[in-house]
Amino acid sequence: MLINDILRAASLVAMISLASQAGAQTLGPGEHVKPVFQQKLPNVPGKSMIAVIVTYDPGGKSPPHHHAGSAFIYAQVLSGSIRSKVDDAPARIYKTGENFYEAPGSKHGISENASKKVPASLLAVFVVDTDDDKLTVPDN
C-alpha cells in the first residue's frame, strides 16, 4: 500500500512539473496562468490534454496571441466575465458558466476581463500535439 501511495505522489509531482513546462505563461498585465493538468491521450497517439486556469485581475488582459498550431481549445468561464475575440468573429462577452472554443490555427485578438472592478477566471483545456512546447505565443 505504501509503495502505491509513493508512486501516486511521484506521478502527481511529475504531472505538475510537466504541466508547468507545457508552455503556459503569463503574457499580459493582470493575467495569471496556472497549469492544473497534463496527460497524454492513450487512445490518440501523439496528443495530450493540458488544462490551465487563467485569472484576470480587474482590467487585466492578454495581448493578441495565437496558440500552438495543433491546439484545439475549450474554454469555460469560471467566474466574472471575459471579453473574447477569435479570428474574424465579433468580440463577445462570456459570463460565468458560458464557454467557447478555438479551432487549431485561430488568432485570439482579444482576451480580457470585461470588468474593471471584479476579477475573472476561465479554465482552458487544450488538446495538442504532445511535442508542442509553447501553448501560447504573442502576436507581433
Score class of each variant (00 low, 15 high):
1 M>W: 03
4 N>Q: 13
4 N>K: 12
6 I>P: 02
8 R>C: 04
8 R>A: 12
8 R>L: 10
10 A>R: 15
12 L>V: 13
15 M>Y: 07
21 Q>W: 09
22 A>G: 14
22 A>L: 11
24 A>I: 07
25 Q>S: 14
26 T>R: 09
27 L>H: 05
28 G>I: 09
30 G>M: 03
32 H>N: 11
36 V>A: 13
36 V>S: 13
37 F>R: 04
37 F>T: 05
40 K>Y: 09
40 K>N: 04
45 P>I: 11
45 P>E: 14
46 G>W: 10
47 K>F: 14
52 V>K: 14
53 I>P: 07
53 I>D: 09
55 T>W: 05
55 T>V: 03
55 T>K: 09
56 Y>N: 11
56 Y>P: 08
57 D>W: 08
61 K>C: 03
63 P>W: 03
63 P>N: 08
64 P>M: 01
64 P>C: 04
65 H>P: 04
65 H>V: 00
67 H>N: 15
72 F>T: 13
73 I>M: 00
73 I>W: 02
74 Y>W: 15
75 A>K: 00
80 G>N: 00
81 S>R: 05
85 K>C: 00
87 D>V: 07
90 P>N: 00
91 A>L: 03
92 R>Y: 03
93 I>L: 08
93 I>A: 08
95 K>W: 07
97 G>Y: 05
97 G>C: 01
99 N>D: 10
101 Y>M: 02
108 H>I: 02
110 I>A: 02
112 E>N: 11
113 N>R: 04
114 A>E: 08
119 P>F: 08
119 P>Y: 02
123 L>N: 09
124 A>Q: 01
125 V>S: 03
126 F>C: 04
126 F>Q: 08
128 V>Q: 03
129 D>N: 15
129 D>H: 14
134 K>N: 15
134 K>V: 15
140 N>L: 14
